[in-house]
């Protein structure tokens, strides 16, 4: 039985890397005493798979992990069992029961929402939003991305699905996943380069708000792939 969980990673947890988040979940699950499935063998592992790692330094209110369970109580009890023994900064926000043939979160992944706010002590530079708009209105935004094997030319224009100025800051919806993947830091870095100004990686605080899959050309939140339980 597969359960998908949506959780947050806030505050100082932004300094905790993905491997440590995985280890933290293993311990959390043991403390909570939930009936998660284990692999066989001499050192059994909990059957867990995360949608996608979050970059170090980013916060999130939309992280996902799928659990393979032997049995589960109702959703409210399930979330409470885990949150009661959890740190506030990693609170579980929601969960759903997935159909048996459901694909895992990682393979569904198509897009992510991000909100960028200016960090305390860093002022919005004059003309920032105007320049950003101009940047986006080009027909193509070529950029060179560093990959494991070398460099690759990409068109950011194809990867930025939405960008909006909002009261809290800049909202970005970006391609995410194995087919096309774009990180908010890379967008900003490319933008500053085009703008001709120095990019300070600490100018923005970045929060990931949501993760989506895609069905018939429409985005669907990962939590909407299952049902209540």
């Amino acid at each position: 039985m597969k359960i998908r969980i949506k959780f947050q990673k806030q505050g100082n947890l932004k300094f905790i890397g993905h491997l440590d988040v995985m280890r933290t979940f293993q311990k959390l699950n043991r403390r909570a005493g939930i009936d998660i499935r284990y692999s066989g063998g001499f050192s059994p592992h909990q059957q867990m798979s995360f949608a996608t790692p979050l970059g170090l330094g980013l916060t999130s209110s939309g992280e996902y992990v799928d659990f393979d369970m032997n049995s589960v109580p109702d959703k409210k009890t399930f979330l409470q069992m885990l949150n009661d023994v959890n740190v506030e900064e990693m609170r579980l926000l929601d969960a759903c029961l997935l159909p048996d043939d459901a694909k895992n979160a990682m393979s569904l992944l198509a897009a992510a929402d991000y909100t960028l706010t200016f960090r305390e002590g860093h002022k919005i530079e004059e003309g920032f939003y105007e320049a950003f708009e101009a940047f986006l209105s080009k027909d193509s935004i070529p950029a060179v991305k560093k990959t494991k094997t070398g460099f690759r030319e990409v068109d950011l224009k194809q990867q930025i699905r939405r960008a909006e100025r909002r009261p809290e800051g800049l909202f970005l919806q970006l391609d995410t996943g194995s087919v096309s993947n774009c990180k908010p830091e890379f967008v900003m870095e490319t933008f500053y380069e085009t703008w001709g100004k120095d990019y300070d990686p600490f100018m923005f605080m970045i929060n990931r708000d949501e993760l989506y899959g895609e069905e018939e050309g429409k985005l669907k939140k990962l939590i909407e792939y299952g049902s209540d339980f």
Partner: peptide, 26 residues
């Protein structure tokens, strides 16, 4: 929330910032 003694810039620059956060469970 209590404020960190170190700025995010410093914490991101050092190895294993979790050493200096004191936010362990328990």
């Amino acid at each position: 929330m209590r404020k960190n003694a170190l700025s995010d810039e410093i914490l991101m620059a050092v190895e294993k910032p979790a050493r200096y956060l004191g936010n362990e469970y328990n």
